[in-house]
Design a protein around this nucleic acid. Structure first.
Lengths: 217, 217
DNA sequence: GCGGTAATTATGCAAACGTATAATTTCAAA
DNA sequence: TTTGAAATTATACGTTTGCATAATTACCGC
């Protein structure tokens, strides 16, 4: 289909309101992420993004120099979203370190951001990350931040039980892998796992691995 | 750039040989997978695929009714490739069940198919899988086959040590998640992990989890 | 050697893509 | 109320995409 009619206008121009830069950027980023999550990178065309965001495609160019720039902004927003989803919850409640660890682990395999969307977006980001150095840096930093948090929680929980280990790093890597694996499999094959099941497996396995009693949450 | 010159031919038609259906299909599928692994689904255009496979684009339509059909064939080939990569190795060597389990686990986090390529392809497949029911079925079957194999190995290894457990299913899910997580993280951030480190973590953690002594391999 | 068949190349086409730019409309300041 | 700048829409352009079809050429059976 050609882009637009080539004749004189009959209908009036569509009305619009000025929402301001921040709101528009956020809307465009949200639209981009939604489309990628639903249909992969291919689905996030400038026209589809504009439609989803409730604007016309020209506006994209007004706020982002290129589609690539919008994509990068969307990736960064996703990483922030994922990080904050776990960071926010951690600071609240639980008196014991074991309790905090259990809560953290349980949250990681529960729908914070609903799993299929997050996993789908994460998968899409892989290809971008592979080539763009800046995206790669953001990705790596996000991973390491999560892992470091996990390592600290593990060390604290062990210390609480009077145990000290030299390989908390390796334990954190493994625990992180376990959580990622569960998260991804649940996202890829949602009907194969119930949220409750995931949580219980994660807690059970981790407590056995650390030889610590972790409370159900 | 327009597709092709619009004038009379000066240069002779490029020479070709008839390779036969099987070879051509395989070449086209391989080219598709390579391109997707390198540049994501967007990179696998019919023209790029044809170029990579050493043919012209018309031939694609001759062997596949549509690009979608080629994509589906490529996905199925990938799943087979991944499955066979682990199946082949399992049948060889090791006298004890613990040894076989250790070997299986070590292979799962080593480059059989080199990790970044496999992980990249796996990520790309997520979006296809989400919408196409047939692809979804293939994906699920592949996952379950791997997990079942793992479960059997775990049960055998435990039995060998005189232990019997009712939750070998959950252990298999967790072990599978651990392996997937390590595999994916190594593929996404290759410079953060050495192959040796991955192997040692996987073995160490699994032996601690199962409370079985697993040999290094 | 010699056709004839089908594998393969060459070319064309409409739609969709990202980008560029001109034309309008909103809204706040004056 | 008017006006001017910025936000937004509308349109256009050149490329690339997937698909279709016509033109050629390799190769097998005779």
């Amino acid at each position: 289909m050609p882009d637009a009619p080539c004749v004189a206008r009959m209908t009036p121009r569509r009305a619009f309101t000025r929402e301001g830069e921040e709101a528009r950027r956020a809307a465009l980023i949200a639209a981009t992420l939604d489309l990628i999550a639903e249909g992969g990178p291919q689905a996030a065309t400038v026209r589809a993004i504009a439609l989803r965001a409730g604007v016309t495609q020209g506006l994209i160019r007004h706020y982002f120099a290129s589609k690539e720039e919008l994509t990068a902004a969307a990736h960064e927003a996703l990483m922030t979203e994922l990080t904050e989803a776990s960071a926010a919850r951690l600071d609240q409640m639980s008196d014991t370190h074991a309790g905090r660890l259990a809560k953290f682990v349980a949250d990681a395999v529960s729908p914070p951001v609903t799993a299929p969307r997050a996993v789908s977006l994460w998968a899409a980001s892989m290809h971008l990350v592979a080539r763009d150095p800046h995206m790669r840096a953001v990705h790596e930093a996000t991973y390491l931040a999560f892992r470091d948090r996990l390592e600290r929680l593990i060390r604290d929980a062990l210390a609480e039980a009077g145990r000290f280990t030299g390989d908390s790093r390796d334990l954190a890597i493994a625990a992180n892998a376990l959580l990622d694996g569960l998260w991804i499999e649940a996202g890829a094959l949602p009907e194969l796992f119930s949220p409750k099941q995931l949580k219980s497996i994660a807690i059970k396995v981790l407590s056995r691995l650390l030889q610590i009693s972790l409370p159900e949450v």
